[in-house]
Every structure is written in structure tokens, then in C-alpha cells.
Amino acid sequence: MSDDTPIRFDTKIAVLLRADLEPWQRLNVTAFLVSGLGTTVPEVVGKPYEDGDGVAYLPMFRQPVMVFEGTKETLTAAHARALSRALPCSVFTSDLFTTGNDRDNRAAVRAVGTAELDLVGLAVYGARNGVDKVVKGARMHP
């Protein structure tokens, strides 16, 4: 017997992208931003999948990832709100489009002060109401 009761999460995963990104950049930035959540916040990951023939697949997030877009100013404000609430977050700066590996990515972020980061993307996880406050002013990605 299966339980068909709708699941409502008290947490939220949100990605905020700068609206002026190219389509390929939006996809790339989103993938990079959410990649750290599963390793640092393990409760966001569900159980492994298996198809009807018994073939196993990797687990995925247990809840939807909400994707938003906004201006550079919206990202800067959201970043400040995420930090002030001490919510787990990841950042993607414009400099990362010119690097080709994790070492150089980390060095590029480390080279710039918090207030000067040229953010093109931000991912945040936490209590639903806290994340909603962080992405305030952004709109759902079309």
C-alpha cells in the first residue's frame, strides 16, 4: 500500500541567477551552485533510484529546486541576506567563466572581497520562510 499524501517541505532550495546570463551559462551556473548542497547538507538528498528492471541510479535532491532570476543588485542584496541569516549558500561569480578547474575557481573567489563579488548566481538552503526572505525581489525563472 502506498501513501499518496502530498509532501510539503519546511525547507527550500533556491537558486538565484542574474537575468542577463546566456542560456548555457544559466544551466552551467545552476549545476555548479547546487553541487555542494548534497555533500554539506546531506538531508537534502533522497534515496537512490531503481527502475522496474532493478537498474540502480544515483540519488537526487528530495525536494524541488526553485530557480529565480534577478538583477545584479537583486543578487547582491540576496547574498547579504543569506549571509546575515547564516544560511548555507554557494556563489558563482563572473570570474568563474574564465577558469577551468576547481582550484582556479576557489582562487578567483578568494581574490575578491565579499562586497565586491561580481555575482551571477547564488544557491541557498534553509527554512522555507528564511529562503523566501533571501530571494525577495527576484522572480521565478521563466
Score class of each variant (00 low, 15 high):
S35W: 12
S35R: 15
S35Q: 15
L37Q: 01
G38K: 11
G38C: 06
T39F: 02
T39K: 13
T40C: 09
T40Y: 12
T40Q: 12
T40V: 14
T40F: 13
P42G: 10
P42V: 08
V44D: 06
V44Q: 02
V44R: 08
G46A: 02
K47F: 04
K47E: 13
K47W: 05
P48F: 04
P48N: 00
P48E: 04
Y49H: 10
Y49L: 10
Y49M: 11
Y49C: 07
E50M: 13
D51L: 08
D51G: 02
D51W: 00
D51E: 02
G52A: 05
G52E: 06
G54M: 03
G54W: 03
G54F: 00
G54K: 04
V55G: 06
V55D: 11
V55C: 10
A56Y: 07
Y57E: 01
Y57K: 01
P59R: 06
P59E: 04
M60G: 07
M60L: 12
M60K: 06
R62D: 13
R62C: 12
Q63T: 11
V65D: 09
V65Y: 09
V65E: 00
M66P: 03
M66F: 14
M66Y: 14
M66D: 14
V67H: 06
V67E: 12
V67I: 15
V67G: 07
F68A: 10
E69T: 10
E69H: 12
G70P: 05
G70R: 07
K72D: 15
K72G: 15
E73D: 15
T74W: 05
L75Y: 05
T76D: 15
T76Y: 07
A77L: 13
A77Y: 06
A78D: 11
A78V: 00
A78W: 02
H79G: 13
A80H: 09
A80M: 14
A80Q: 15
A80Y: 08
R81A: 15
R81S: 04
S84D: 15
S84G: 10
S84Y: 03
S84P: 03
S84W: 01
R85C: 04
L87N: 02
L87E: 01
P88N: 00
C89H: 15
C89Y: 00
S90W: 05
S90P: 03
S90R: 09
F92N: 01
T93A: 09
T93N: 03
S94I: 12
S94M: 09
D95F: 04
L96C: 11
L96R: 07
L96D: 05
F97M: 08
T98M: 05
T99I: 14
T99P: 02
G100H: 14
G100Q: 08
G100P: 10
N101Y: 09
